[in-house]
Each structure stands twice: as C-alpha cells, then as structure tokens.
Design a protein around this nucleic acid. Structure first.
Length: 271
DNA sequence: CCCGATTCCTGTAGGC
DNA sequence: TGCCTACAGGAATCGG
C-alpha cells in the first residue's frame, strides 16, 4: 500500500535510471486507470529528456524538457526498472521505454493509480494545487496542525490523513504515529492541545523517516523499483496487530473502524 | 464549510 | 477442495 515512504523509496530507485535519459516511447496497454489516460499522451511524451524525478505528496513527478509526468501508485501500483525487451506481465499497464535499453514499467492490479502529462507548471494542476505541507518539510509542525484543527470535530485520525492538512500520511502510518504520540485516534482534532499536536507532528515525522530508511512497508503488494519488499513491517507497533499485547502496557491492541478505515490503537496508552 | 458515506478495482483471506 | 463474500485502501466526489 504505497504511502509516502513507499513512494519515496520508489522515487529513489527509479531516479538514477531516468535522469539524463530520453523517453523513446510511451507504451500504454491499459488506459483505464483511476482517470483514463489522455489520448495522444504517447505522442506528447515520446522523445522527452528526463531532467529530474521528484515527489509531491504521494505523486511522482517526472520532469522533462517538454513536460511533467504526474504518476500516482494508487494502492497497489509499483514501478520497476526492467530490460525493455522483457515481456509484459499481467497488469503491466504502462512502459516508459528509455534510450538506455531499459524501461520503467508500471504495474497496478487494482488500477487506482494514475498518469497525467502536464505542460506548464505542475504546481498549478488541480490534483496538486490544494495539497497541504510535506510532513518532512519545514512548514509542517505542531503549530500547523493545531491551527488547522481549530473548530474541527472530526476524529484526529482522518484529520491527519486529510491531504489538505498534511500529505502522505495513509492508514498505516496514521495509526503508528498516533500510537507513538499517545493520542486516541477518535479524539476530536479540535480538542487536542498545542503541546500534544507538537508530539503528534514529531511522531509523524519520525515514523515516516524511519519507514523511508527501511525502504517502506510491504504488507502484500509493495516492492521497490528492483522488486524488493520494504522492511518497515517488522517495526509496526499497532497496525495489523489486533489482539496482540500493546508494546507499552501489554493490554490487547484494539481494532475499530474510524472514518471508514481500520484503525489500531491501545485504549490504555492513547487518550 | 464541515464531515460522513460512497465510489472506483481486484487479489486474497476467511467462512462454510 | 471449492465457492462465495467481505475486506483492503487513496482520494475524489457526493449528499446532508
């Protein structure tokens, strides 16, 4: 399930293969992704030289001399760097065929991913324009969270998963960060003190940074650009551990649905 | 504006 | 063993 650490792991894996190369061809086998691929995208992309591979929220931005590829992995998407001649497998929807003889291959069984080709400033695109700060960036801190939460009654877990508040925090890391901060996931966001929001912001940063260091979390699908899983799963303290003892106090970890998402927490340690 | 519910999709796990 | 159903989840969008 690609969240920010998995997308960043993917970015780091593909960037050295893409930067400085030319995209000879865009091969599309399936246009029906989260949004249908624009007709004519193949013609727009062919021949573009990749300048840099960036990331904003969970989007990868492939910056070229003639436009920007905006790619989202959805929840089951992955990118792999493979020889261009390797036969495509099931769910291999798109190839970026490079002049190096390799290609970057997008596989996505559930097709929640997306690919757009942007000409002009990517930041102005509707999908990017209203995003909140990067959790590992300078403008994100407890004060930001505290201010954003004024007057809100929504539970803090969906609050931190809202991309207008802060980007990149998905279901797994939301549960982990709230556990680390000692905050109950159902607590109304607007009823959390500044001091506790500072703990929460620190926890979000720490959890995400540690997950990036581990190459992301592989629950089922996720692999990096060379097909390897991430190793953060073994560091998860509450996610997916319903009934197991809390690492803090030993009480059983609870699983409840909050905001239509499975949430894991310790009723004793998180208030 | 706020917020909960719904929607897209398919592989997998669990129940019987 | 095999069938059927429920569930997983990012995030846009809808409805109240």
């Amino acid at each position: 399930m690609p969240e920010l650490p998995e997308v960043e792991t993917t970015r780091r894996g593909i960037a050295p293969h893409l930067e400085g190369t030319r995209i000879e061809q865009l091969v599309v086998r399936e246009r029906r992704l989260r949004w249908p691929l624009a007709t004519g995208m193949e013609q727009s992309v062919a021949g573009a030289r990749v300048m840099q591979v960036g990331r904003r929220a969970k989007y990868l931005l492939i910056g070229t001399d003639r436009g920007t590829g905006l790619l989202h992995l959805g929840m089951s998407g992955s990118l792999r760097v493979v020889p261009a001649a390797l036969p495509a497998a099931r769910h291999d929807h798109v190839d970026l065929v490079l002049d190096s003889g390799r290609c970057v291959r997008f596989n996505d069984p559930r097709r929640f991913g997306s690919l757009h080709w942007l000409e002009g400033d990517p930041a102005g695109h509707p999908l990017l324009a209203h995003l909140g700060p990067e959790p590992l960036g300078r403008e994100f801190d407890g004060e930001w969270l505290y201010r954003a939460a004024r007057g809100l009654r929504v539970a803090v877990k969906p609050f931190i998963m809202n991309a207008r508040v802060v980007v990149g925090v998905g279901n797994i890391y939301a549960s982990e960060a709230l556990f680390q901060a000692g905050i109950h996931p159902r607590r109304p966001a607007g009823r959390i003190s500044l001091a506790r929001m500072q703990r929460l912001a620190a926890a979000i940063r720490e959890v995400l940074a540690a997950a990036i260091d581990a190459g992301g979390t592989t629950l089922r699908d996720f692999t990096d650009s060379e097909g390897r899983p991430g190793y953060f799963r073994q560091h998860l303290r509450v996610y997916g551990r319903a009934g197991e003892p809390c690492p803090g106090c030993g009480a059983p970890i609870r699983q409840e649905v909050i905001g239509q998402r499975a949430s894991y927490f310790c009723h004793a340690c998180q208030r």
